[in-house]
């Protein structure tokens, strides 16, 4: 459900523009549309935008503007957003589901009552969107995990899960960028770098992008992306 937008002051330097209370596709579409509009044509004093699941943080420079001015400008922009959803950039992420790169694949199959190949097929059929980044640099939360392979997190996190792991939990999927603990299910490994190292475009995705996975054999994973 969409609700009347709220612009809540945060400290001396930001407004949290809240577009919904619960995650829903129409709320996300509105977050992305507002993000895009403000990036293309910043309001005076705008410093940084942080889109999330149901809201957008607008950080501003308190030396040149204030909450009231930014709220008025942002809410006016919200009222004039295009009705038609805008095109999203498609991205492809490579994934290898072969052992030893998919340590939880068998467990996901067992818990969902599917074969391992059916789990893989469901994941490959997923049409994901980049909902937000968070947790750590380049951790892009992808929504759109197909229903049949949705599982709650594991009860205990696994330590030192390698960077590039393709992990799932709930309706989300994520490709890790750091070696970190995770309680999500590890169903594959990707050579695709989210932290691209490219100066002009240091992160592979932007919020709102469409993502599909493409299967590769272990031999291709070991060669790198």
């Amino acid at each position: 459900m969409t609700m009347p937008p709220r612009a809540v002051p945060v400290a001396d330097r930001a407004l949290l523009v809240e577009l919904g209370d619960a995650v829903a596709p129409e709320v996300q579409a509105q977050v992305w549309a507002l993000d895009r509009a403000l990036r293309g044509d910043p309001v005076p004093g705008q410093v940084e935008l942080v889109p999330a699941m149901v809201n957008l943080l607008v950080i501003f420079d308190p030396l040149v503007t204030d909450h009231a001015a930014v709220a008025a400008a942002v809410l006016a922009r919200l009222a004039s957003l295009p009705e038609v959803p805008q095109d999203a950039t498609p991205r492809e992420v490579l994934v290898c589901y072969d052992p030893p790169h998919a340590p939880d694949l068998a467990a996901v199959a067992a818990q969902t009552g599917l074969t391992e190949e059916a789990v893989i097929a469901a994941h490959l059929a997923g049409e994901f969107r980049v909902a937000m980044y968070g947790f750590a640099p380049g951790y892009a939360y992808l929504t759109g995990l197909p229903e049949p392979i949705r599982l709650p997190r594991k009860t205990a996190p696994l330590r030192a899960v390698p960077a590039g792991s393709v992990i799932i939990a709930g309706g989300q999927c994520l490709v890790t960028t750091l070696t970190m603990p995770t309680g999500w299910w590890i169903i594959g490994r990707s050579p695709t770098r989210i932290l691209t190292g490219a100066e002009a475009h240091p992160f592979l995705f932007d919020v709102g992008d469409r993502v599909r996975f493409r299967r590769i054999p272990a031999s291709e994973l070991e060669q790198g992306a």
Binding site: V10, A52, V54, N55, L57
Partner: peptide
């Protein structure tokens, strides 16, 4: 739902 935070939150 997870949402943005600031230094000082």
């Amino acid at each position: 739902p997870s949402e943005p935070v600031l230094r000082g939150s």
